[in-house]
Amino acid sequence: MAAPLSKAESSYLSTGLLLSERADGRSLLDYRPITLATGVVPSANGSARARVGDTDVLVAVKLDAVRLDDVVDGDDERQEGKAQFVCSVECSPSALPHLPTDTLPDLSSDLTTLLSYYLSLPSLLPLRQLLIVPRRRAWQLSVDALLLSYGGNVTDVLFAAVRAALWDLRVPKTRNFVYDTPDAADSALGPGLGGFRIERAGVLDHARGLRRPEAADFELEDGSDEGVPLEGRELLPVCITLNLLTPIFYLDALPAEEACTPCRVILFVRPSGALCGLHRVGDSEIMPAELKQVLHEAVKHGQELAKALNDRLRDPKIASLGSNLGAFS
């Protein structure tokens, strides 16, 4: 991703890394200061901006109530058990000005795939909370990210912003109701009340072959502008990228460091320490023994990162910093 280095520069940096002396004096496992702000896109249901060094990522999450029949294949039971989402990561040309513009779509698409992978992780998105009317209506999340500028370690910053945006997300409270049609012959539903609105949690037994009443629907609860936070937001996994330079690994790479360390492993770690995802980047191969050695330590750092981010997000001072998207501090 970075501009080319000379052989001398590359060698200076790698030798330094192997001696645990980095270009800016950090230790191998030090992160640069991370700045987070939430509520930066007022028109979204949740949003956040994360900055580390010159890397700057903006994420907005919106909720749309969709008809499940429109988005789910009728008989695909697997899909029914999944939360609905669409996502994208765009790398703006100003993020990587030295790269020709035609390589940007590749980078954007790689990151979009990774984001999609993250959002599909089991139990990441709370299906139960996102379902409005079971089998009928659900909240579909759109998670869209924009890489505004690049200063190394895009993936970790991207997911820090995604987590923060999901933390900021408020799911509107809804109330379900069921319309009974005049000629409902369903005895199981009780006497037809013809055209009246009945409030009922509308789960109907498909398997028993009963006919659904028409237009099961929902409405937003009055007076609740806030909505509720996403369930399980403290448990959202963090992303921690390991830059591998045998026999060491290091975190939070600068652009020049990334240029001389093409081999990377991306880990998704829950605050509990559970490793829930792993993704390899780069062309070189990794020996399992190498990886095993670093995983334990890496996961520990992932946990620390998760705790630090959660603490930061809980601090009421950073919530809703407003929509000033100018100089960010």
Binding site: A8, L19, G25
Partner: peptide, 19 residues
């Protein structure tokens, strides 16, 4: 293209100046 050997103290000094 080959660098000389550079000791840790010098490297730290270089990082400091850079920062």
């Amino acid at each position: 293209n080959k660098n000389d050997d550079i000791d840790l103290e010098t490297r730290a000094a270089i990082s400091r100046v850079s920062n």
